[in-house]
Design a protein around this nucleic acid. Structure first.
Lengths: 148, 148
DNA sequence: ACAATATAGTTTTATATTAAATCATTCGAT
DNA sequence: ATCGAATGATTTAATATAAAACTATATTGT
C-alpha cells in the first residue's frame, strides 16, 4: 500500500472506531433514560439546571448545543410534565429564566446518579491508564472548536 | 479526593472528552454535506449503496443504525430527488431493493471524496502513533455492542 | 393445505432538530 | 427622546427519529 493510501486508510479507520465507540457508549448509557421516559435533550436541560441553577433559554441552548428554537419546544414539553417552570425576568423582560420544580429536582437527582453509574461502568472497560490516555487524545481532537 | 470519587471523576471526565471529540469532529466533517444539501442520514444511505451495491431497506437500516420506519422516509426523500430508485424483488415480494441512479452515483462519488478528505484532515490533528492508539482504545469501548 | 408465525416495509404518533422569519424588548447613538 | 440595531424567545417549515400498530408476503409445523 502506498504511503498516501496508508495515511487515508488509517485516518478513516480511526475515525470509524471513534464514532462507533461514542455511539456505542452513548446508546448504552442512555438506556438509563428510557425508564423515566426522558429524551436526551430533556435530560440535558434538567441536568444543566440541576448543576448550574436557573438559566435562561439562551444559556441552556449553548450548554446542550442545540438551537434556541429547539429549546423552546423542549422546555414546553418539560413544563407540561411540571418538571420545570418559566419565569419572566423583571429586569429585562426578554429573558425567561427556567427553574426546576420540586418534582423536577427530585427526578433529575435520581436519574443523574443512575447515568453517572452507567458512565463509570462503561468507562471501566478501560484501565485507569487507558482512560487517561484516551482523554488526552480526545481532548486534542475536540479542541479545534465546533460542537454538535 | 477519595479513591471512589477519583474513579468516578476520571470516568466522567474521559466520557465527556470522548463525546466532545466525536461531536466536534463530526460537526466539522459534516459541514462538507451542506453544499450538496444532504442530511447525514441521506449521506449514509447513498454511501452504503455506493460501497455495497443495491441493498434492501432492512439492510440499509442496520448499516446506518436507524429504524426501518425511518429509512422508508429517508428513501422517499432521496427518491424524490431521483438519487435512488426502489425495485420490488421478484423472488420475494416483501423486499424492496434500493439502487443508486446515475445521478445518485455521480453525486455520492463526488461528495464521498470530499468527506474522506475532511476526515483525513481532522484525524491528522493526531500523529500516526496517536491515531493507532486512539483506534485501539475506541475499539475496546465500541465492541460491547449496541450502536446508536 | 392451512393456521400460526415471522419478516419487510409502511403508516402513525409524538418528539426532536435546524434554519429562517418574526415578535418583543432593550440598548445605543445621535 | 427616538430610531435603529441587537438580543431573547417564539413560530414555521422541512426533515429526522423511534416506537408501535398495521399490511403484505413468505415460511413452517402439523
Amino acid at each position: 500500500m502506498k504511503p498516501i493510501e496508508n495515511q487515508t486508510y488509517r485516518a478513516l479507520s480511526t475515525y470509524t472506531k471513534l464514532m462507533r465507540a461514542a455511539g456505542s457508549v452513548t446508546s448504552r448509557v442512555h438506556r438509563v433514560l428510557s425508564t423515566p421516559k426522558l429524551t436526551i435533550s430533556q435530560f440535558g436541560v434538567l441536568e444543566a439546571l440541576f448543576h448550574k441553577g436557573p438559566l435562561c433559554q439562551k444559556d441552556i441552548a449553548e450548554k446542550i448545543l442545540k438551537s434556541t428554537g429547539n429549546i423552546t419546544l423542549v422546555i414546553d414539553n418539560l413544563e407540561k410534565q411540571s418538571l420545570v417552570r418559566r419565569e419572566r425576568d423583571s429586569e429585562d423582560r426578554r429573558y425567561l429564566t427556567v427553574h426546576l420544580t420540586e418534582a423536577g429536582t427530585e427526578l433529575i437527582a435520581r436519574v443523574f446518579a443512575d447515568v453517572e453509574s452507567a458512565i463509570v461502568a462503561e468507562m471501566n472497560i478501560l484501565s485507569e491508564n487507558e482512560q487517561e490516555q484516551l482523554g488526552i487524545l480526545c481532548k486534542k481532537l475536540g479542541m479545534k472548536g465546533g460542537g454538535s
